[in-house]
């Protein structure tokens, strides 16, 4: 519940700031503004002062203490740094609506059509002898174990 409270505060504060300062979420996420925001919201963030035992064989189940110097890195329900700014379909870039328009403003193609086209093996689809479909599920397992982000 403390993490949910932090998330609510962050989301609502972001909304208030962008409206009051007439800036976009992209502006707020930019350098400078993001540091001001982080400083202002710091005291309302959950999970502070994590203590790790260096003698523990494993990290915590939620990923905490995987990195002893930065105990929260890679843990569940924490923000993940991005290489590029987000571009979701909702105006606030929260991600509740997937992106549906291209940079030209035209609707993006149906992902199912792309998937079917890319993976269409024709009448004689290639068969690998090195991996089975288990590789896919193992990759998904690792992915979700690392992310665990709602």
């Amino acid at each position: 519940s403390s993490m949910a409270r932090s998330a609510d505060i962050s989301e609502i504060a972001s909304d208030i700031i962008t409206r009051r300062m007439s800036i976009t979420m992209g502006d707020l996420q930019g350098l400078g503004m993001s540091q001001r925001f982080a400083t202002a919201i710091d005291s309302n963030c959950a999970l502070k002062n994590i203590m790790c035992n260096p003698a523990d064989i494993y990290r915590k189940p939620n990923g905490v203490c995987n990195n002893l110097k930065n105990p929260m890195w890679g843990s569940s329900i924490t923000a993940q740094p991005r290489f590029i700014p987000p571009h979701y379909g909702d105006g606030k870039n929260i991600g509740i609506i997937p992106r549906y328009l291209s940079v030209s403003g035209e609707p993006l193609p149906n992902p199912r059509h792309i998937s079917n086209s890319v993976h269409n093996g024709g009448i004689s689809p290639p068969r690998g002898c090195q991996f089975t479909v288990l590789l896919t599920f193992f990759g998904q397992f690792v992915d979700h174990d690392v992310i665990s982000t709602p």
Binding site: D8, I9, I12, A13, I16, I17, I41
Partner: peptide, 16 residues
């Protein structure tokens, strides 16, 4: 600072 004010307002709304 306007950012701090907005965060404080959000805290008030969430904790209300």
């Amino acid at each position: 600072d306007i950012v701090s004010e907005c965060v404080a307002e959000a805290v008030g709304l969430v904790d209300r």
